[in-house]
Computed example of a mutant assay.
Amino acid sequence: MQTLSDRALNRATLARQHLLKRSDLSAVEMVSHLGGMQAQAPLSPYVGLWTRLASFAPEDLAGPLLERRLVRAVLQRATVHLVTAEDALYLRPLVDRLLEARFDGHFRAAIEGLDRTAFRAAARELTAEAAYQRPALGRALADRFPGHDAEMLSYAAVYMTPLAQTTPRGVWGASTAAAPLIGLETWLGGPMEPDPSPGRLVLRHLGAFGPATVADVQLWCGLTRLKEVAERLDLVRFRAADGRLLYDLPDAPRPPEDVPAPPRLLPEYDNLLLSHKDRSRVIPERRRVPLPPGHGASGGTFLLDGLWRGEWKFAADGAFELHPHVPLRPSDEEALTAEGLALARWAGREVAEARVLPPA
């Protein structure tokens, strides 16, 4: 069985992420290919698509969101993801148990004694008819389930009910206020898949992040017990340098490990950094990925030679800043600054200066 070095895994994943060469895919096609984009910061996918696509304008994402071909919902890892409508309707049933378990891990005692079957039915009924801000949804549910805290009921509804975050949240240039929540099927105008296959999730992860271990796939989606699923699929197998068993699609790109990887700017919460149990292929020194608050598109991380080597941001004084983890060569500073200024022009920002802070 062939052994793949961390560098070979890095180049394979970068190729599938379209971070070696920008792609001619459309925004919707790229979101589909990536299996969704993490989107707690609602504007972060715009930067994620800008850095991956050869041609991309804000309306290329905003338009499909408004047309409901794309949607923001709580899905993989119990986090907000931007996905295609088709993917939302098959993903949500797969993560039902995960989401309820995540809620119970934090708040089970707060809804002790709640009739969950009746609660789910009531939450679905309410959100099938109208969109609610979360506090208002909590109050409506408290009217039906007296004796329970309205805020806890609203959280329970988010985790136990298939919901979409409505536009204009996530639309470039529109309000960044919290989005009203509505039933996912109502918003998308179609039923969820009755019996979705977890094998489809395994294939999607490998297509965007592979080669990968079963543990990698499980961390990305939040599901467990996927080893038997992977074993039933038509996959090829490799070994990582440390002996881990890796699965992959037979025809997926696995470029030579000496292929150059250009500098790239990633947004906050980019799944490249969050979708492997062993992240050494992209994260040296086991650094924790920053998860800053905010609406996105004003900062993130950067890659040098395919590795996460620092953070970038548009500072309050109008500067483009680089916060490296390691000393940068002048050519790296120049290339990263060029990317930052290009992003600023794309986003309609005026940049007063570019500066590089000391490594930290």
Rank of each mutant, 00 (worst) to 15 (best):
K277A: 14
N271L: 12
P284V: 05
L304T: 01
D251M: 02
L303V: 02
D251W: 13
G299L: 05
H276K: 02
G294P: 02
A261V: 01
P292W: 06
P256Y: 11
P255N: 07
G306Y: 01
K277C: 11
P253H: 10
S298A: 14
G294W: 06
S275Y: 11
G306I: 06
S275G: 04
P267N: 08
H295L: 07
R279G: 06
V282D: 00
N271K: 15
P267R: 06
L291Y: 09
R264L: 00
V259R: 13
P260I: 10
P256G: 02
D251C: 08
A297F: 14
G300F: 00
A261F: 01
R279F: 04
A297G: 12
G306H: 04
N271W: 06
R254H: 14
G306W: 02
L265T: 01
E257T: 04
S298I: 13
G296R: 02
P263Y: 08
E257P: 00
P267Y: 15
L304W: 00
V282G: 07
L303R: 04
G299K: 06
R281H: 13
E285W: 13
G306L: 06
R288C: 07
D278I: 07
R288A: 15
E268F: 10
R281P: 03
G296T: 01
P293D: 09
P260E: 00
F302R: 05
G299P: 07
R254D: 03
P284W: 03
D251V: 04
E257W: 14
V259E: 15
G296F: 02
T301R: 05
H276Y: 09
G300M: 01
N271D: 13
D270K: 02
A297N: 10
D258T: 07
I283R: 09
I283F: 08
L304I: 13
P263Q: 08
G306C: 10
G294I: 03
E257N: 13
R279H: 03
G306R: 07
P263W: 01
V289M: 01
R288E: 15
R279E: 13
L272I: 10
L273S: 01
E285C: 10
A252Q: 09
K277S: 14
R286H: 11
I283D: 10
P260S: 08
L304K: 06
H276Q: 06
L266P: 04
R281A: 14
S280I: 15
L303N: 05
P253T: 09
